[in-house]
């Protein structure tokens, strides 16, 4: 008898609690969960694998436009060139070459075009020990001064590599020095970093200990 009376009571209590629950869900009494902030898509340049520059080696290999490497389109063959320097011993570049920034080496120690270019044949390079190097073989010239880096580059551990690590399955592609370094200004310039992880909340300015001040 007792159980019979209890059953409808329990059922009604359950029904009422379900109804309350349903009402709260339908009216969103607790509110919806917070919407995620929009995360702007990342600039596609950050996922590009292209090198910083196009090297002479790549231009010749891909049969690109090498007209700017033909010095005697403008220069007169056989005519001796003299460099002009200002009072700080900086080489004065003519207007035709004003795209060049002379910043190779510290303390102006490498401030002479003919340290690398051959003054007798402008279309080739020369090393300090008197070898002549084709412009597309620039790494031989770079290596004549930068020994340890050249050694690492030859071993494949300096500079960029792409393609296949397993050479039996495909070709490994090594970049040459000037694909990344501008020979007149070889140091990497600071660049804008890609966005960091979205913090999903306002960012507190954090002063990291390493900041130089």
């Amino acid at each position: 008898m007792k159980a019979e009376r209890k059953t409808p009571l329990v059922l009604s209590i359950l029904t009422i609690s379900f109804l309350i629950l349903a009402a709260t869900f339908l009216t969103d009494i607790w509110g919806k969960s917070a919407q995620l902030p929009e995360i702007p898509p990342v600039d596609p340049s950050f996922t590009k694998t292209a090198t910083a520059r196009v090297s002479a080696e790549e231009l010749y290999r891909t049969k690109g436009d090498t007209s700017m490497l033909e010095c005697y389109g403008c220069h007169e063959q056989g005519k001796e060139l003299t460099l002009k320097f200002d009072e700080d011993h900086n080489v004065i570049l003519p207007d035709e070459h004003d795209d060049i920034i002379m910043a190779h080496g510290t303390h102006n120690r490498n401030n002479n075009c003919f340290n690398c270019h051959d003054e007798h044949n402008l279309e080739v390079l020369q090393t300090r020990d008197g070898r002549t190097v084709k412009i597309q073989d620039g790494h031989d010239l770079c290596g004549s001064c930068h020994g340890p880096t050249y050694r690492d580059w030859l071993a494949g551990i300096h500079g960029r590599t792409s393609g296949f690590w397993n050479v039996s399955m495909g070709e490994k592609h090594r970049e040459t020095c000037t694909a990344c370094h501008d020979p007149h200004q070889p140091k990497f310039l600071p660049r804008k970093p890609a966005p960091g992880p979205n913090p999903l909340r306002p960012v507190e300015v954090k002063h990291s200990e390493g900041k130089a001040h």
Binding site: G159, R160, S162, G163, F164, S168, M169, G170
Partner: peptide, 15 residues
């Protein structure tokens, strides 16, 4: 596993 380098390595601008 197809013999190629990973994506993070190929994109690294400094090697």
């Amino acid at each position: 596993r197809a013999g190629k380098y990973p994506a993070c390595m190929e994109v690294c601008p400094t090697g």
